[in-house]
Design a protein around this nucleic acid. Structure first.
Lengths: 337, 337
DNA sequence: CCGCCGTCTGGTACCGGTAACAGCGTGGCG
DNA sequence: CGCCACGCTGTTACCGGTACCAGACGGCGG
């Protein structure tokens, strides 16, 4: 299997064919403007003739630059993480960077494992979701000095860079909106919060609003569940059993809101007449579901783009004025609340 | 920026501290059983003391093995591609492989660009979505000899390996089911088919069933659109204008089926009373939406797992008996058809 | 006509693990 | 007691681009 000599075509073969030196071939490919036009043509012809594909492993090794950004996302299930990543790809791909993707399953221990591997692979930049990490992760990143961006949060202080929005503020604003619409018994459904600081911050915003407005904060009004439609439906059944007087439900994820809305339809419960429902994220389905879902819009793609741009800037050694970027949020009031 | 000497801690430093040679450090980490227990302990201690993280770029370079699988997916928007990828990750991560991920936007030219980069980065295996590729892609893969798996199709012949199901057969079966339920004017909504052979195959299966059963195959019954909820809703409005007598709608993606179902609810059109609707994929929402959606279940995770296992087997040089694996499909009859 | 300078090109060493093979010591067996 | 086999460890060269620096060449001003 593992033979020593693969000896496909390398710079030296191409160089020989073009009648130049190896280094000139490299330059002709990497910095064409530094090579005379005639030489460049000869090299290009030789490259074409040999079908030469530069070995980026050797290149990375020699230059200590991999042109790889490594990202840790909790899951790929819903399109949330995907939107951030797509935004980042739009920025980094045109600059020749590739994406190394790892999935943590919401485990910060798994995240640490991935970060260790990413550093071992000498990724030029690292993308993390959220701001909760193990001490080991912090130590690894500090020691390696790899540019790092944290996503969807506004950490104080960040490991290095961060792009996000105020989860607390957004949840506070939506809770307040529900209250100002006349709702008094506002329940909250949150995805599992273990190792998910964003969700805990949203819960904080909700509680803060309830406290300020003097509303019922019965803990039976709050439920935590896996981020699935079915879990939200089941939780709503329990909620209605325990607190049939609930008049609003704030789900800190559109997935849960949609699941709850379907359950209402199943039971013939009027939305928003009997129960107002609000979501979080503004996924495509929020606008299209019947009735259209009131939710919080997060500029996911823009966040991904910013994150990519910041990483590239840091990799290039540029000065960065604001390492933590707040991309904001927006209440989208539709029909359910 | 680029200094020559980074000279972090390397095998040689660790080796010096442990009082052994460089190669022994490598072996202690890569194949612990080939090193005496006492030596291993000394090495482990030295590794811990120095915080040594092996440079996998150097390792890849020296051994010509990167332990990277590179994947091209058309988009990350919906969770379809994500499920395949998650299945594959389950198989490859425990074996120490990482994922290099590229997005083609349904462009086979972009796919070729990605494949060229992946080969340049010496990925050990390549994962492609679908079986439609440019001649350039075929040439690159043939020349490089990189193990390759094509997903969600059953190509004849495959580039190398393939794991999927019969798109034609599944669409045929669902169309037939609609007809046998008494539907006579069966419309079809398909996502854009350019460079998406799976969708074209599904259309073929639909047409084949119509032909066999002698049903109406008015081309106004077939519409092609972006894979979004809103596009399906709009297309349904057009369809109902042109062919108000339509009595069934087969969407070759659940996304379109859900969008169409919402539009029916908006218009007060009874489903399945006035219009039967069937989807394709069995996403989570299919089971939970009200009314529950009849659809075709694709074993996405299993396909991803198979793909990963096949790639690893080929990388390990094992003999592969069946390079094309059919994971089948299943009609899931719920309430909408 | 000479020398300086800028442009382009080349020689060489090197990045840091690892393949290949050699060597050493120990234990078993004849 | 000697030989061989095997387990363990070490030496050396090498993977293929690229950083660094030097040198060749041509043009231009003095």
């Amino acid at each position: 299997m593992k033979q020593r000599k693969i000896a496909a075509v390398g710079v030296r073969q191409v160089a020989a064919l073009a009648g130049v030196s190896a280094i000139t071939v490299c330059r002709a490919l990497a910095e064409p403007e530094r090579v005379a036009a005639k030489t460049r043509e000869r090299v290009d012809a030789a490259v074409k003739a040999t079908g030469y594909i530069p070995n980026r492993i050797a290149s990375s090794f020699a230059s200590n630059v991999t042109r790889m950004i490594a990202a840790v996302v909790p899951t790929l299930d819903n399109s949330i993480a995907a939107d951030f990543i797509e935004g980042m790809l739009e920025v980094i791909r045109p600059r020749g960077y590739q994406l190394l993707l790892g999935k943590s399953n919401f485990s910060i221990a798994e995240e640490e494992t991935l970060v260790r591997e990413f550093i071992g692979r000498r990724a030029d930049g690292i993308y993390l979701t959220g701001s909760t990490h193990t001490p080991g992760t912090h130590a690894l990143l500090r020691q390696a000095g790899t540019p790092t961006v944290e996503i969807a949060c506004l950490p104080q202080p960040p490991i290095d860079l961060a792009v996000g929005f105020s989860n607390t503020g957004a949840a506070y604003a939506m809770t307040r909106h529900l209250a100002l619409s006349g709702r008094r018994r506002i329940a909250l459904f949150t995805p599992l919060r273990e190792h998910n600081d964003r969700q805990t911050q949203r819960l904080d915003g909700y509680r803060q609003a309830l406290a300020e407005l003097g509303l019922d904060d019965d803990k039976r009004l709050v439920a935590e569940m896996p981020m699935t439609l079915a879990a939200a439906a089941a939780a709503l059944r329990v909620l209605l059993g325990q607190r049939p007087d609930v008049d609003a439900l704030f789900c800190t994820s559109d997935v849960l809101a949609v699941g709850a809305l379907f359950e209402c339809q199943r039971r013939g419960l009027a939305v928003p007449g009997a129960l107002a429902i609000a979501g979080f994220e503004d996924m495509e389905i929020a606008a299209c579901i019947q009735p259209p879902l009131t939710t919080v819009r997060i500029p996911r793609r823009a966040i991904g783009q910013h994150a990519g741009a910041l990483l590239l800037a840091r990799i290039a050694g540029e000065e960065i004025e604001t390492p933590v970027v707040d991309c904001g949020f927006e209440l989208v009031i539709r029909d359910t609340a």
